[in-house]
Every structure is written in C-alpha cells, then in structure tokens.
Nucleic acid binder design. Structure first.
Length: 466
RNA sequence: GGCGGCGUACCCAAGUGGCUAAGGGAAAGGUCUGCAAAACCUUCAUGCAUCGGUUCGAAUCCGAUCGCCGCCUCCA
C-alpha cells in the first residue's frame, strides 16, 4: 500500500488512483523566461523520481508538465532584450529541455503550453462566466473568489483573514482585492489572442486548469509543485477547475520543500540562486539527484558545495558496484543471496510517502551485502544477475543515479584503446619494478579523470565523476 | 498579525509510542597493496534544542520556553 501526504487533507492518505493501475499526474513546470535554478531543479527532479517510482510499482503513469510561454515576466524580458515574447519563450523552452535532459529527467508524456491551448483556455473562462464565478470589466475577466465556497481549502486560509491581511492592491476593477485575472486585455505591443471579451492573454492560473483538464481529464490523481504554489496558484486552480467543471479537481496534492541557501529560500527575486546548468558544470546529474533524494521531498534542503561533495563521494560506492557487476566473470551456480528482502525493504520504505532517503539507506545496505559477497571470491551467476537487476531497477530506473547501459568496454574508441595501452605500459613498468614510471602513468591518467585501480582479478579503470 | 513547518552525532539526514536511534559524508585503526585507490572489518549520539507533564514505556504525545524558516505578493 502506498501512502502519501496530501496537502489538501494535511495528512498521509492511502493512494488510490481513479483507475486502479493508472496514474494521471500533473506537475507545474517552468515559466520560460530564464534558465531554471537548482531550486526549480529540485522540484523537477523529485517529481521525476516520484513518477519513476510509481512506474516501478506497476502503475501506468501519464505525466504532464506545462511550460508557461505566455506571462508578464516573459513580456518584460522580451522588452528588455528587444525581442518578441515568442523568441524569449522559445529560447528558454529549448534551454529547459536541454537542462532537463542533462538532469536525467525523463521526458513528460506531454508538455502543454498555453499558446497551443488558447481555445480550451477561452472556453473554460466562458464556462466560469456562465456559471457565475467570473465577471468582465472593460475587456478584463476576473474570478470572483467570494462565489467559490471552497476557496482556501488547500492553503488553509480563510477569505476574511486573507482580506484583512492583504496588501492594498490598486485595482478598482476588482470586486474583491483577492479576485484574480482570468483574462487580461492586451496593452499596445503585447502578445494577444482573440476572445469574447477583448484581444488579450490568459492570466497565469487558468492555463493549468485548462491544460490539465485537456490532457488528464476533469478529475485526475496527482498534482505536484513547489510549496510556494500552494497559495495562490493551486488554490486558484481548484477554484477555476471546480467552478467550471462542477467536479472535484485533484485527489492528491503533493508539494515540494524549498531549496535554501544559508537557510533562506533560493529564489529569483532574492537573487540568491545558481542556475541548474552552472551547477551541472561542476557536479554530475547523478550527484545532484542523490543530493536531492537524500532529504525527504517535503523538507527544506540547504544547498551547499559540502553537501554536493558528500553526495558525490557517497555515490561512488554505487557506481563502483555497478562497474564491478558489469565486468564480473561469474562462475556457474547459485548462492544464498536474498535479493527479495532488499526489494521488500526498499518498497516498504518508499511506499511510505516516497521516503527516498530511507530507500537509499536500503540501497547502501544492499551494496554492502553484495560487496561483501564479491570480496569473498568468484561470484555466482545468480548473484551477479540478481544484484545487477536490482541495481538497474532501483539505482538507475527509479533514482537515475547510476548509468548501467553506459559501457565503455563494449564500444572501443580511440580513447579507451589508448587508456588500455597505458595500463599495459604501467603493468610492464611494475613488472620491472619501475614504480616511478608506473605512478607517473597512474597520476597522469588521474589528472585527466581516469582512475586506475589494481584489483585482485586484474587492473580496472573508471572515469571519475564530477 | 493570521496560518504552517523545523531544531537528531563533527556535517547531511531517516525515524513520529516499545528490539541495541537507519543511511551517507568526514575522521581513526585494521585487512589487501611496491605505494595508492576501491572494497571489506572495527570505532564514532546511555542520547534526539531546553524545561516540565502524560504513560509500564517518548526523539516520537501534551504544555511552556528559546532559536530558525516558509506562505499570506511574482516565485519550484
């Protein structure tokens, strides 16, 4: 049984998707006006791991992640750089896919964009107007929050308290300061689309309601995003979708904790951020993913080079084990290796609200178990096969921190041939007790990112990870 | 002001009523090695911010205190 913490109920619930073996999963993606930062990356990676875990547990997951390509920040950026909004959006959408691929985030089943769903967006606003949840003023359309009974149910806020606490907003068109824009009339030079009210563009919140509905249905299973989206974004999505469709919107809401720097939230507005691509220049995707997964997805996580360094070092154990298993020359036969217990412990850990830190603990216990057996001599065929499958399914398949398919030995290139040649030379030097030369070869390769290791059954090498 | 969360070893971090408080990093000793590296073995919190309380039993529940953070405004 999988349980997960549902922001809507504020407690762990048993996970029961609408269709027993299928999960419809929507993740709030980026607004494409800049490169995304490592804080964004944390959410994207964690949603990726959750999606992978659900698939590993046998669910047929349909994963949709929007790219917001119409928004004020894009327009502002376009004006700053003297480009069209479309050019900006296209450029950073491309950058998003590049970075996501580098982070080993599996491509979504769909990446809907508002510019491609204008008809659905306009239609949903029309339904909200018809149903009495929205009103038009001078070409703008606003959601009338007072009309929606459940407003505040996700964020735990009460309408009157919100009003009391809200900053004074200078917009006389709104009936209530908390009303939010569904449709914005275009100012001269702004991108615009046709609608019954004016030529303009959708407000930020409506796209997720319209597009999730288009891709996953009026009611779907999981909706995820960063904690800062709980209010107002997700609260507003509920008001829109349920106001328009008259049905429950989402059954389970998942929210990711923030990535902090010096215990403060990393954010663009605070300026204390690193872009994911900059971090990926110095650390591998695997290190970053492990760094993220070591902390529960709902907890805050402090970003630091020490932490990344520790993650990098810790991952070595798994990567080395993967190499050993790949190159093992097993003897025929069986042994008493009990991989089932490892699976059971792993599943039990992660079924509990995606407790990946605990899942990793199981993975390291597994690694110790296997390493201990490998150290005893020739491993059996069953050990190599079962352990390899486990590592491939968990470390590569669920977590994406080990690359099993990457096999340098199977694809000789000039580079690997040269490395192997140098290893031969070193072996020769060692036989002649010319250790100075042997060490020089080893050190020279190490400087270039290739580490040589003398094992019992011969010399192995591997490329050191960032 | 309203609402929510957090404080576990040198660092990161799981554990939310009951075996000896996971796991990773760092550190120390050992096996192996020409020397290393990796791997393996061993050591590393009588204690979980502080003080009270409930209980046969609490890091875990309750109360108070101290410290930190987030949302309420664009933000993953």
């Amino acid at each position: 049984m999988i349980t997960l913490y549902n922001t809507l109920s504020r407690k762990k619930e048993e996970f029961k998707p609408i269709e027993p073996n299928a999960v419809k999963f929507y993740m709030c993606g980026p607004t494409v006006y800049d490169f995304f930062h490592v804080g964004n990356a944390r959410s994207f990676v964690m949603s990726d791991m959750i999606r992978r875990y659900l698939a590993y547990r046998g669910f047929d997951v349909t994963f949709a992640m929007n790219l917001t390509d119409v928004e004020d920040k894009i327009i502002r950026r376009a004006n700053e750089e003297n480009q069209s909004a479309k050019e900006i959006a296209d450029r950073y959408a491309d950058a998003f896919f590049e970075d996501a691929e580098k982070l080993k985030i599996r491509p979504a089943d769909s990446n809907p964009r508002p510019t491609e769903h204008m008809d659905e967006i306009v239609a949903m606003i029309e339904r909200l107007v018809e149903n009495g949840y929205a009103y038009e003023v001078g070409g703008n359309v606003f959601y009338d929050v007072a009309k929606f009974e459940g407003y505040g149910k996700l964020s735990g806020k009460k309408l009157d308290e919100l009003e009391a606490g809200s900053r004074v907003e200078v917009n006389k068109e709104k009936r209530n300061p908390l009303d939010f824009a569904l449709w914005k009339k275009a100012k001269p030079g702004e991108p615009k689309w046709r609608s019954p009210w004016s030529e303009g563009r959708p407000g930020w919140h409506i796209e997720c309601s319209a597009m999730s509905c288009a891709r996953l249905g009026e009611t779907f299973d999981v909706h995820a995003g960063g904690s800062d989206l709980i209010f107002p974004h997700h609260e507003n999505e509920i008001a829109q979708s349920e106001g328009a469709n008259g049905k429950p919107f989402v059954n389970y809401w998942l929210h990711f904790g923030f990535l902090n720097i010096d215990d403060e939230k990393m954010s663009k507005s605070l300026g204390n951020f690193f872009t994911a691509r900059d971090v990926l220049d110095n650390y591998s995707a695997a290190s970053l993913r492990f760094f993220f997964a070591q902390t529960h997805y709902r907890s805050p996580l402090n970003f630091s080079s020490d932490g990344l360094e520790a993650a990098r070092a810790g991952l070595e154990k798994l990567r080395v084990l993967a190499e050993k298993l790949k190159r093992a020359k097993p003897r025929a036969g069986k042994d008493d290796f009990d991989v089932e217990t490892h699976y059971a412990r792993f599943n039990e850990a992660c079924d509990d609200d995606f407790n990946f830190p605990k899942g990793f603990a199981v993975l390291f216990d597994f690694a110790r178990d296997v390493n201990r057996r490998l150290a005893q001599g020739e491993p059996s065929e069953t050990l190599v096969e079962k352990a390899g499958t486990f590592l491939r399914e968990i470390a590569e398949g669920v977590f994406g921190v080990v690359d099993f398919s990457e096999d340098a030995a199977a694809d000789p290139t000039l580079e690997t041939e040269l490395i192997e040649f140098l290893i031969e030379l070193r072996a020769e030097a060692k036989r002649e007790k010319n250790y100075a030369l042997a060490d020089r070869i080893r050190d020279g390769l190490a400087e270039r990112g290739v580490r040589i290791e003398d094992g019992k059954s011969g010399v192995t090498y591997r490329k050191t990870d960032a």
